[in-house]
């Protein structure tokens, strides 16, 4: 009778890692976050991508209980952000600051560990963040990348279900960024939920399973990198069509979902939301051959979706 059925346990663990509903934050007359809705499931690696001032940091602050929404609700694993923090369910790596220069790397981790009910051993998190050799170094003497890995080590301490990273690699050199992401990547393989804000497109593309594009305090696109690239700018279908005539090109332009047709000698370039339909048409009803379908870059999608007035 006291036994918990597996189904009940599963239902309970299925509370979303993050549930934001109608989240709104205003600073004076500026609305930083404007009725944002977002649900993140456990185990997802999500990039929150957007230009500066899109509302990424304000959203993350509310997710962590660092600030209160003016409207809407925040739930982290079915509880309030403050409670999730106190239980060690969620930790964060913030953009900059937040370290005492006069402590050593090991002391900083030791101090943070002392504040939680239960943590992994200090030596273990230093190892996982690649800081074992830097343990005795003063924080003031650490490079930007080392300081960021220290923040990551602190965030690993309570073995959280969710790690939130706010622009974690800002100001790091290429090598520092690579090492930092390697540490995160290795850690995420353990099944932890990771949410990171970034304005580096390549980071979102390379490290996230899902990209949430934020602009003007709202979610403007949500999906895998490939979905977002396709959704906005469409795909580019290129084919060789010897002797294509202008009326034939105009007919292509008239197909549903085609945005643009360009002729370069014997090569025809078709931009379309539904590249499959275009490809099928080209291969079955025209002499076109050597067909290629390419996604336009995430950068195109990013600009199209986050530039006010641009078609999306």
């Amino acid at each position: 009778m006291t036994q918990t059925t597996p189904r009940e346990a599963t239902a309970a663990t299925r509370a979303p890692a993050v549930a934001l509903r109608g989240l709104t934050k205003r600073f004076g007359t500026v609305t930083a976050v404007d009725g944002l809705d977002l649900t993140i499931q456990p185990g997802e690696i999500v990039a929150v991508l957007g230009p500066n001032g899109a509302g990424k940091t304000s959203t993350i602050d509310m997710m962590l209980g660092l600030s209160r929404p003016d409207a809407g609700t925040v739930e982290v694993f079915g509880t309030s952000p403050r409670s999730a923090v106190a239980h060690g369910l969620v930790t964060a790596v913030m953009q900059s600051g937040g370290l005492l220069k006069d402590l050593t790397v090991a002391e900083t981790v030791e101090l943070t560990a002392a504040l939680f009910a239960h943590t992994r051993p200090v030596a273990e998190v230093l190892e996982r963040a690649g800081l074992t050799e830097k343990a005795g170094r003063r924080v003031a003497q650490c490079s930007g990348g080392e300081q960021q890995r220290l923040r990551f080590a602190m965030a690993l301490l309570p073995e959280p279900e969710l790690i939130v990273l706010d622009e974690p690699t800002t100001g790091m050199d290429v090598e520092g960024r690579r090492e930092f992401w390697n540490a995160i990547r290795a850690d995420a393989e353990r099944g932890r939920t990771v949410v990171f804000a970034t304005h580096y497109l390549d980071e979102a593309d390379a490290y996230a399973d899902r990209i949430v594009l934020v602009s003007g305090g709202r979610v403007v696109a949500d999906g895998t990198a490939a979905e977002i690239k396709a959704r906005t700018a469409g795909r580019l279908v290129t084919a060789t069509w010897a002797g294509i005539s202008t009326p034939e090109a105009v007919a292509l332009r008239a197909l549903r979902g085609v945005e643009d047709v360009e002729l370069r000698g014997d090569t025809v370039l078709v931009r379309a939301a539904d590249s499959d339909a275009v490809a099928r048409h080209l291969l079955t009803t025209t002499p076109a051959r050597d067909l290629q379908i390419t996604s336009r870059g995430l950068e195109d999608a990013f600009l199209a979706l986050t530039t006010p007035g641009a078609p999306s």
Binding site: A86, A92, L99
Partner: peptide
């Protein structure tokens, strides 16, 4: 230094 903010990410 932002340490107070960092502490608010602990219990």
């Amino acid at each position: 230094l932002g340490w107070s903010r960092q502490l608010r990410l602990t219990p």
